[in-house]
Design a protein around this nucleic acid. Structure first.
Lengths: 202, 202
DNA sequence: TTCATCTCGAACATCTGTGTTCAAGATATT
DNA sequence: AATATCTTGAACACAGATGTTCGAGATGAA
């Protein structure tokens, strides 16, 4: 079945809706379809003309976001010193989190668990892989479950996003704070906590 | 205005409602009044007979919870070695978090921000005080905002609660994981991360 | 036992959000 | 200019949650 080409204004509206939905849901995961349509400068009926469901819309938004996230993460060099690689990973993850914020929550509420897990999977595995390598080289602590360490990284990043949103933390200060926090968090007991500044020097 | 004494069954029901509401909301902050009434083994109308609003109910639940939390925290000795004191604080906080879980979220959704802030205030200040002391004694890192460190502690604790709920982490392992994670997180760059086991030895 | 208090289901009003239908009008395409 | 495609507000049906009212019946207090 060949899909007939969409009219130009339709394409334009679909893009506007996806863009608005991303921004709106990243701020408020409970945003109504109405809110999103209004943010896109489009009638609610038009939105439903392009997306079956609220779920279908969220799904499309998540897919788009994940493509972006994957592109950013794939372009990342995680070789070399594990601690330095972690700082690079954190910086990249931070940029992505700032952009997509609470979108995860929106996904969790209207998408089947399997789909959410799939979206979460890739970034988590990437972090896990780096942590495993750091552990193997004796740079990261091995006295706690690796999955817990990954969860901590993830959680701290989101906490930083909230802090920025609440005005407690400046956007640029946040990146440094997250990296520093995570290095401390990963350092094995009995070892010295590295300084972020020393790692980012080139 | 003197309030007439309640009949015994009324008192009993009020207690049951508060108890059920606490447990139910700690699991699902979106639980409906219906769910809560059913969990309390009471008709919905009865519930509304004792509490004006959903908000009033949540408020009562939070008040009760905070009294308990305050009691636990006040009974805590935070003197001596800051790291050891932190481990004690973490253990106490952990117990409380396990009990009240997502109740905070429920509060955030149906209570005015001021009331939520007030409830949050006391425990936060307690943590902040200990961190400040540890910083003054050179045991905790001073290169990051203290408020950020407090937020991290708070966040990591909640992440652990979720992990336990998801079955990723055993309840008893979690307490150790949180304490270990936090010690690493607070250790100043250039210093050695302490071992939790060494601190809890008596 | 008497009586005020309390319980409770059923039914109702209200609100908010989702999703659909319709018919008129705007716009891209050719 | 002709036409298929697209947009749109208004109106509707529906679902779930909150909060209220009523009246019959259960229960505690004296």
């Amino acid at each position: 079945m060949t899909t007939r080409p969409l009219r130009a204004d339709a394409r334009r509206n679909i893009d506007a809706i996806l863009e608005a939905a991303t921004a709106t849901l990243a701020r408020d995961p409970d945003a109504s379809v109405n809110d999103i349509a209004r943010a896109a400068g489009v009638g609610r009926v038009t939105l439903y003309g392009h997306f079956e469901n609220r779920a279908a819309l969220v799904s499309a938004v998540v897919e788009r976001a994940m493509a972006d996230v994957d592109a950013v993460l794939q372009a990342l060099d995680l070789s070399g010193d594990p601690a330095a690689a972690l700082v690079r990973l954190v910086d990249a993850t931070w940029a992505v989190t700032l952009r997509y914020g609470a979108l995860v929550v929106a996904a969790e509420r209207s998408l089947p668990a399997a789909e959410v897990a799939a979206a979460h999977g890739a970034p988590r595995e990437r972090a896990q892989w780096l942590i495993d390598r750091g552990r193997a080289e004796g740079r990261f602590r091995t006295d706690l479950p690796a999955s817990w360490l990954v969860t901590s990284l993830h959680t701290v990043t989101h906490a930083a996003a909230n802090s920025v949103y609440d005005g407690e933390l400046a956007t640029d200060a946040a990146a440094h704070a997250i990296a520093a926090t995570m290095l401390g968090l990963l350092t094995p007991p009995g070892e010295v906590v590295p300084d972020v500044a020393a790692l980012t020097a080139h």
